[in-house]
Design a protein around this nucleic acid. Structure first.
Lengths: 108, 108
DNA sequence: CCGCATCCGGTCTGATACTG
DNA sequence: CAGTATCAGACCGGATGCGG
């Protein structure tokens, strides 16, 4: 009976609220790239094939607003901006792992 | 060292391929609604607040094409169409559960 | 050169109206 | 009931521009 907990104690459709935070088309890819450690803007752009500069900026902003990652600016001669996951962001790994498991079995 | 498996044996960014299947704005909500059992079109529409008929049709078609759910038509007088998760679709529950857990802790 | 804002064309989404 | 057709508006991606 405990297995149906998800269907009784949950508010209603938190899913939509969750997706507002991590449902972005590239959010998961960004998180995945940042799991090993912080990265610069350009590094992220290179690590995520297919993403556009514009969308990367947008997603990063949204994720920063949602406290999933932090943005640190260094006033160096070539501008340097580093992005790193917060604890809230790191805790998304289980979701990522489950997705990867499912993908390996049914997609790959 | 086994814990980094996700970052070495994985193709590259399967994430995008996975998201093509379950990354739709409403996919997860539909799956969530269908976990307890099959539902008719109108029932789904009622269970998912905010979705439009058009998007529901579209997502259902996409998910059917991706073998996540099945569509069964009954030639009754008032048309009846039932949607049910396939095994591939049921196996998405762990992801849903992880998302719910994360959401309860950080969103709700 | 890096990080990002802006402009522009194409795609997707949502509300409504209509068919079998 | 179960969808399709349509139109306007939001959104996405590529190229360009600009300060540091």
């Amino acid at each position: 009976m405990a297995e149906k907990k998800i269907h009784k104690s949950e508010s209603k459709c938190t899913i939509q609220q969750i997706l507002d935070v991590i449902g972005g088309k590239w959010s998961m890819s960004i998180i995945y790239a940042l799991v090993p450690g912080k990265l610069r803007f350009k590094e992220l752009e290179r690590l995520i094939p297919g993403i556009s500069t514009r969308m990367l900026v947008k997603e990063l902003k949204n994720m920063e607003a949602n406290k999933i990652l932090t943005r640190t600016v260094f006033a160096t001669v070539p501008p340097t901006v580093e992005y790193a996951l917060t604890e809230k962001g790191v805790k998304l790994r289980p979701i990522l792992d489950e997705m990867a498991k499912w993908g390996e079995e049914y997609v790959a």
